[in-house]
Design a protein around this nucleic acid. Structure first.
Lengths: 228, 228
DNA sequence: ATTGACATTTCGTATGTACTAATTTATGTT
DNA sequence: AACATAAATTAGTACATACGAAATGTCAAT
């Protein structure tokens, strides 16, 4: 499949942001204009315009009024940005004393400015980690990424024991709160009770009982303990 | 003196680059349009345009056809960029295994992307250094900068003993070469001979004799040894 | 005082990215 | 089938930044 773009023109920061956003939005279905606009806090009209440009560059497949999907070329860019973002987050936490609630904003700017060299040196300094501080997997330099099938805490039954692996938000306030509850990736969690109709979940963490809202519990991604 | 700009609008990366360039260019005399164009590798017309905008924002004093000087507000920005640039250089060398010839390009991009927080954490990790790997002084968080009066090696007389303190170039090739000669800041240097008419200088460094071109020797900034 | 060389500015234009307002398309309801 | 609603696109505009070409200013040499 031939498109007109000559190998690798340098992309703008904006283009990189769009591609990264589209990557995280288009799980099964294509990403819609309004989803993208929402994520990037832009007017839908602006997104329509950028979609045209990125499609022309062969980075997106656009079905008008239906949404967009990344092309292979687009996915390469998106995964490079995701790798950068998550490695920067890990580096800031590990070496510069950042809390996990502060790294997102910083990484959001740095990911556009670091060289391939710098990223690989940071990766090496970190010992080539496979996940960032939120438990999000870090794509390899070749773009390989392993997205395990985690279960949201909100879906576990009372009595189930699991390990928290990943926290599905970048919201600073929520992250601060989650950390206060001791809910860091790697921690074992027992579901004590669960209220019906999307009610709160009562859990036991670090030998303390905590109650978390359903919404929050949806963000707490776990693996069930192998206990059968 | 009142200008119209409302405290601190966010500046673009370009504007930051211009102000930093003008800072380093306007030692005694104002910086001319063509000097700036040269430094930033832009067409003079583009510089004229940006000078207008920066003057309107109260960051530059522009005397048409004469050149520009930084206002106090402009100098604050310029010094913030210089601090960032040099701290980033120092950090990359100290913690990420960079050679001093590679840090400039990386810092040139990162300086626009780092937060105040990140810069101060890097400064702390480095122990608040006063100079970068090239011996260039690092302005304080308040903008205070100490520019000592160094003597170019090219001006020392045969027999004089001095300590190399600062290397006045960012050119990667030259820096690599200078490092090969063992001419790192802090090293003691003895002038053995000097050819007339801007000829090469023969020196003794680390007990080895080296010959350096006049041009290069102008970049090697020293303090004479207190030996009288 | 005029001229020539050079620097600087102005003018018109291009690109990238955003916006609002108006239009078009898709889809679900009657 | 006709309509209403929501989503997406287009059209027109604005701003920042760059460019080249043309006009203008500066200054030293005659």
């Amino acid at each position: 499949m031939m498109t007109r773009h000559p190998a690798t023109e340098p992309l703008t920061h904006s283009a990189e942001d769009y591609l990264k956003a589209i990557y995280t939005l288009s799980g099964d279905a294509p990403a819609s204009t309004s989803q993208i606009a929402n994520r990037l806090e832009l007017a839908p009209a602006s997104v329509s315009g950028m979609i045209r440009r990125l499609s022309d560059q062969g980075l997106l497949d656009h079905e008008p009024y239906r949404g967009v999907l990344l092309t292979d070329a687009g996915r390469v860019v998106a995964l490079r940005m995701v790798r950068r973002h998550r490695l920067i987050e890990a580096y800031l936490v590990e070496f510069l004393g950042y809390g996990w609630e502060d790294v997102h904003a910083e990484a959001e700017r740095l990911e556009h400015a670091v060289s391939e060299t710098l990223i690989e040196r940071m990766a090496a300094a970190l010992g080539h980690p496979s996940v960032d501080p939120h438990g999000d997997p870090i794509p390899g330099p070749d773009g390989a990424i392993d997205e395990p099938d985690y279960v949201p805490l909100a879906l576990l039954e009372p009595g189930e024991v699991a390990e928290l692996r990943r926290v599905g938000t970048n919201h600073a306030g929520r992250l601060r709160y989650i950390a206060e509850l001791g809910l860091l990736p790697g921690v074992p969690v027992t579901v004590v009770a669960r209220q019906p109709f999307e009610g709160p979940v009562t859990i036991r963490v670090n030998d303390t009982k905590q109650v978390v809202a359903h919404d929050l519990a949806l963000l707490l991604l776990c693996v069930r303990d192998a206990n059968d």
